[in-house]
Design a protein around this nucleic acid. Structure first.
Length: 438
DNA sequence: TCTGGGGTCCTAGGACCC
DNA sequence: TCTGGGGTCCTAGGACCC
């Protein structure tokens, strides 16, 4: 194949993608400098590695590796439970630093963002490469760990860049050199191309990303739907995927799933797990002032299949008791006492903002408003004293279980993140029985 | 990635209507 | 009772992302 540029105009748009290196582990090292240079692994509460520092990676630790196996290859590993409050806090600082350069920032995930720096060369008196380098340098210095960045004419190519060299890489890919990078990438390494598409491409004798980019448009239109067609255009240097710079105010659905080990067939225990998931989903609903009109409940079997049901609610609600009671009615439609289950989950959908809620002031809606006020109070107490200080009686068994495991997921913030003058409070947990048949 | 948790978007196909 | 054509809305499920 001839070596030919895919695009002449190098940066019609200058899109930067930035990715925190080993983000969770790095946050831990940044907060506690004594951990620097050590193999740090998060995910202790689940017994498998969620994120590991580069020191740990160098020793052969990989994602989802069991802690018992890690100890064998890396006896001095430091295991920590995930602490999302800290990670979110550092994530916010990460976005803030990038926003000093441009407001066109998409908060793509807790450890990644896109920034559109098109047109900043003149005002900043620097070329794009220098600007990208400056942003990265600010992040590294102010957050105390490194970031990898990629600059390209669109999001897809910027992502190729940020993955190109890790950790602490900065890769600039102008339009005229896209093809050199794509020649060295398999299709499945490209953002938006997953295992299914890549397997299909292999059958079509398309292996590298460059081979895909070189296919003609009719071929791509004929074989693929919109998402891959758009990715194909980006591989060819076009700007297709806009940045979503509006911060997320709402959700289309909210899901809560929890796996428990060992698996269980105990009806009461499994139901309480589901109840706790419902409670958590409702906390999130209320935080965003949303109510749900429908939902699905499901149990995850040992073989990873699901057994579930979908229910349309008779009215919008964000009150867990309502939903727990609905789940209770339908529970036996998905539960079988002879089957072992490993997880439960709930998805709330058809979400609407609370102001749209109908105001029929007779009957149930009144009670519902009262419940809403009650749970507003519950939210306040839980904010103050730690999540699940007050919780539904139906979740009792699940809460006991997680305490027994030493789960820190629900614990209040760790001490060095507390505001000045604040002290750590002793945890107390109060089950609450409101209008429930337990 | 022998399997954790939380999302989004897209398309095909059915229901229903004129 | 039979037979067209066309539009909209909704849902389920697939695929993908971190």
């Amino acid at each position: 194949m001839q070596d030919q540029p895919l695009s002449i105009n190098s940066f019609p748009r200058a899109i930067l993608h930035i990715d925190g290196d080993a983000f969770f582990a790095s946050c831990e090292q940044s907060r506690d400098p004594r951990l620097k240079g050590k193999p740090v692994i998060t995910g202790k509460e689940r017994g498998i590695a969620a994120s590991m520092s580069y020191e740990a990676k160098a020793r052969g630790v990989t994602r989802a590796m069991r802690l018992s196996d890690i100890k064998k290859i890396c006896p001095d590993a430091v295991f920590l439970p995930s602490d999302y409050e800290t990670y979110s806090l550092l994530s916010k600082r990460f976005y803030e630093i990038v926003r000093r350069y441009t407001s066109d920032v998409e908060e793509y995930s807790i450890d990644e963002c896109f920034a559109d720096i098109t047109g900043l060369r003149r005002p900043l008196r620097m070329n794009y490469s220098r600007i990208a380098g400056k942003i990265k340098a600010d992040l590294d210095a102010e957050l105390g760990f490194t970031f990898s960045a990629g600059l390209g004419p669109n999001k897809t190519i910027a992502k190729v860049g940020s993955k190109w060299k890790k950790p602490s890489g900065l890769t600039i890919i102008p339009g005229y050199s896209i093809h050199r990078y794509l020649a060295k990438k398999y299709t499945e390494d490209i953002w938006g191309i997953g295992p299914q598409t890549s397997a299909y491409l292999k059958k079509e004798k398309v292996n590298t990303a460059l081979e895909l980019a070189r296919k003609n448009e009719e071929w791509v239109r004929e074989k693929f739907t919109k998402p891959i067609q758009e990715t194909w255009r980006e591989l060819n240097g076009q700007f297709v995927f806009e940045l979503e710079t509006e911060s997320k105010e709402s959700y289309a659905s909210i899901q809560k799933v929890r796996t428990f080990t060992p698996p269980s067939r105990d009806r009461g225990f499994i139901f309480s797990q589901l109840s706790k998931n419902i409670e958590n989903a409702c906390i999130k609903l209320r935080r965003y002032s949303l109510s749900a009109k429908s939902g699905s409940f499901f149990l995850k079997l040992q073989n990873f299949r699901y057994s579930g049901i979908e229910v349309k609610f008779s009215r919008l609600t964000s009150v867990p008791n309502d939903i727990v009671n609905i789940a209770r009615i339908h529970f036996d439609e998905m539960y079988n006492s002879r089957t072992l289950y490993r997880a439960t989950g709930v998805t709330l959908s058809k979400l609407e903002e609370d102001k749209n809620k109908q105001l029929d002031l007779f009957g149930e809606a009144v009670r519902s408003e009262e419940m809403k006020r009650l749970f507003k109070g519950v939210d306040e107490v839980n904010d103050k004293f730690g999540k699940h200080t007050i919780y539904l009686g139906s979740s009792f068994a699940a809460n006991k279980f997680s305490q027994h495991l030493g789960d820190r997921g629900d614990a209040p913030q760790r001490k060095n993140l507390l505001a000045r003058g604040e002290t750590k409070r002793k945890r107390l947990a109060i089950p609450m029985f409101v209008g429930e048949v337990v």
